[in-house]
Amino acid sequence: MSATAESNAATKPPVKATAAASRLWGFGVVALLIILGPVVVYPVLLMKVMCFALFAAGFNLLLGFGGLLSFGHAAYFGIGSYVSAYAAKAWGWPPEAAVTAGTAAGALLGVIFGVVAIRRQGIYFAMITLALAQLIYFVCLQVPFTGGEDGLQSVPRGKLLGLVDLSNDLTLYGVVSVVFFLTLLLVSRIVHSPFGHVLRAIRDNEARAISLGYKTVWYRLAVFVLSTVVCALAGAMKAIVFQLASLTDVHWTTSGEVVLMTLVGGMGTLFGPLVGAAVVVAAEFYLASIGSWVQVIEGGIFVACVLGFRAGIVGTLADFGRRSIAARQGASARAAVN
C-alpha cells in the first residue's frame, strides 16, 4: 500500500544506517516499557496488550509487508487459543506444550487456508479469508470440544517446564514478556531478511518480481503461514493468560479489531501494530463503562484513519523524523556548497 512504499523507498546507505539505529532504539524503548510497565499498569492488562500486539504484528507481516489484507485472522488466533486451552485443561499439558500445540494447530490451518486463499488477490483475498474464518467460527460453534457458547473456562496456567508456577501474575508477566520480545525480534528478522525484501518487491510490483525469477506464489504462501503462526502463538498465550478460550476469539469482530490496531499504529511499520494494540486495548479497558458504544467508537476510528490518517501513528512519526533528517542533511549540504 502507498504509505508503506514511501517508508521503504529510501535505501541509501546513510538512511539505512539511521533506520537500523532507530530500530535499535525502538527495541530499547519496548524493553524499557516491558520492565517499567507493571509499576504503573495492572500486569494482566499489559499481558493482554502484548498478546494483541503479537497478533497485530503477525497480521501486519501479511498486510504491511506481503500487501495482502486478510479479514479473517481471528481464525488463527482463535484456533491457537482453543487448542492451547484444550491441551492445558483436558489433557493437563504444561503451558509450554499447550502453547506449542496451539501454535502448531494455527500453522496447519494456515497452510490449508493459505493454499485456498492465495489463489485470489486484493479485494477477493480479503473476502475469501473472511469467509474461511466464518467457516471456522461455525465449526467452533458446533463441535463439542470448544464448549460452544460457554467456551473453555478456568484453563489452568500450570507450571512452566514443571518448575515455575505461573499462577502468580508477575511470574507469568515475565514469561509472556520474554516470548513477546523474542517473537518481535523474529518478526523484525523476517522483515529485514532477503526473504522480506523479496516480499516487498512482490508487493510493490509483482510482474517485475516474476520476471526476476521469483516464484511469487510460494513467497505469498510462506508469508501467509508465517503470519498465521505468529497470530496462533498470540492466541495460545492469550488462552493461558486469561485462562479462557471463547467464541469471541474466532469471531469476525476480532478479525476487524486486529485490522484496526494495525491501521491505527501504522501498517508496514515494525512497531506500529504494537502501538495500535496498546491504544485499542487501553481504549477498550478504559471505555468499558460505556459498554457497547465501544464498537461505534471503533468504527469511527476506522473511518477517521482511512480518511485522514492512513500512515498511522508510527508511520506519521517516521515520516516526520525522515523529513527532519532530510531537512538537516539538505541544510548541511547547502552550507558545504556556500
Partner: peptide
C-alpha cells in the same frame, strides 16, 4: 482496500 476498510468502519 481502503474502501473496504472505510465501509467496514461504517458498518460497525
Amino acid at each position: 482496500l481502503y474502501g473496504l476498510l472505510l465501509t467496514f468502519g461504517l458498518a460497525l
